[in-house]
């Protein structure tokens, strides 16, 4: 997937920088590159839940590694969004066990309700719907992940409607702060 360059200056908040340094210190001397995935999670939060090329370059500077080392990792893992996403990223598991319990219905219902296609974002930039692979909630399907949380047993239109309504009303929402 092609990454996006925004040419906007990137700077982590003080607390995010401190967190990143603390995480690098967890690994043996000289092995701080291990911290890259946890730090990219932080970077994603600092950048509205996606990674621009500028953000990745900033992470490379922070970690004192080559930018290409960051790109290699960021493009491999599916939780890193390489293009902008809506304020709420609705990740519906569509793998076999969820599919036999209504995952396909859930994706169709969400998409028609929000008037988008899978992978798309609503015009008001509130919601992105995406099919993802097994999230380890197979017995509680249909389900989806939104930020840090799992929403399970979403088997009726009423439950889905109520959840979307609840999200719409969360004016204070910030992508959950991730790392302890």
């Amino acid at each position: 997937m092609l990454a996006v360059k925004t040419n906007k200056p990137v700077n982590f908040s003080e607390s995010a920088q401190a967190k990143a340094r603390e995480i690098m210190d967890r690994y043996p001397t000289g092995k701080h590159k291990s911290a890259i995935i946890p730090i990219l999670h932080i970077a994603q939060e600092e950048n509205e839940n996606w990674l621009s090329v500028d953000t990745m370059d900033y992470v490379a500077g922070l970690m004192k590694i080559k930018p290409v080392e960051v790109y290699e990792v960021a493009t491999f893992y599916s939780m890193f969004n390489l293009k902008p996403v809506g304020r709420f990223l609705l990740e519906v598991c569509h793998t076999g066990p969820c599919a036999v319990r209504g995952a396909e219905w859930l994706i169709d219902y969400l998409c028609s309700k929000l008037n988008i296609k899978p992978g798309g974002t609503t015009a008001d930039n509130m919601f992105t719907v995406k099919g993802v692979e097994c999230l380890g909630a197979c017995g509680y399907a249909p389900m989806m992940q939104i930020g840090k949380y799992y929403y399970e047993h979403l088997d009726t239109p009423e439950k889905v409607d109520a959840l979307i309504e609840q999200l719409r009303n969360r004016v204070d929402y910030k992508h959950e702060n991730w790392v302890v």
């Binding site: 967890r26 995935i37 491999f76 599916s78």
Partner: peptide, 10 residues
Amino acid sequence: IVVHCGAGAY
């Protein structure tokens, strides 16, 4: 003990 996280990759 260090708890370490991945980022989505079976």
